[in-house]
């Protein structure tokens, strides 16, 4: 119970700090953020957009890990866990795409410009979509679990390629990418310590939130299956 209260306070604090703390030229007090040329007030997106993208990856990783576990042990609970993780990953993937696009409209002038990061998140969106299309097309439970596990493992293998290919093929606009000239890699050195601190807090807070949502979600899937089986038997 106590960690739920901590989570509530953590994300409340992050939203207060992320939205209301002023951005000034020369930060003096602990609650002032540095002004990053090219981003200005837009830089505050980092407290809300980056965690969603981070959770997308975490969810994808977890989904793959539990898929692997399912293939090893053939335990339906692992499939429910993988499925719940993928569902949450899809939600956060959409959130990351949309928030990023809205931000890009005002930072780069267009909603979508096939920046490497945008393309990779688009690929993730396609993978999640394909996974759910596959799941919905199969009736038999075990077959569905096996095939979707296999597919998510194949899809997971392709992800590292995007990291290597994208920067070669497309020019980077995203803050933090290698040839970024306009906005500067804010992640590396332009954040001051208080901004970095709140950023890390926000990552931690959102990860706990994800973990909680994932627990609720996979439990509901497991119990639904259990109740269905009881209905058939009884």
């Amino acid at each position: 119970m106590i960690w739920k209260i901590i989570l509530f306070l953590l994300i409340s604090f992050v939203s207060i700090a992320g939205i209301a703390f002023p951005i000034v030229k020369n930060p003096q007090a602990w609650y002032e953020f540095p002004n990053i040329p090219g981003l200005e007030e837009n830089a505050k997106i980092i407290f809300f957009h980056v965690p969603t993208a981070w959770l997308t990856l975490i969810a994808f990783l977890m989904s793959t890990v539990f898929s692997f576990k399912y293939l090893k042990n053939k335990n339906m609970d692992d499939d429910a866990k993988a499925y719940a993780a993928a569902q949450l990953g899809m939600v956060f993937c959409i959130l990351a795409t949309v928030t990023g696009a809205v931000w890009a409209k005002f930072a780069w002038g267009a909603f979508w410009s096939w920046d490497p990061r945008q393309t990779s998140i688009f690929a993730l969106l396609l993978i999640y979509g394909a996974l759910f299309a596959l799941r919905s097309s199969i009736e038999s439970e075990e077959k569905r679990a096996t095939l979707s596990s296999v597919y998510s493992m194949i899809a997971f293998v392709t992800v590292p390629f995007f990291i290597f290919i994208m920067p070669r093929i497309m020019k980077g606009l995203h803050p933090g990418s290698a040839d970024d000239t306009g906005a500067g890699p804010i992640v590396n050195f332009q954040m001051n310590s208080s901004m970095l601190f709140i950023f890390v807090l926000s990552l931690i807070g959102f990860t706990i939130l994800y973990y909680w949502m994932w627990q609720v979600s996979y439990k509901s899937v497991i119990y639904r299956d259990k109740l269905n089986k009881n209905l058939i038997r009884g």
Partner: peptide, 8 residues
């Protein structure tokens, strides 16, 4: 900020 807090 207040609205975001309420939503959260």
């Amino acid at each position: 900020m207040i609205i975001v807090l309420i939503v959260w």
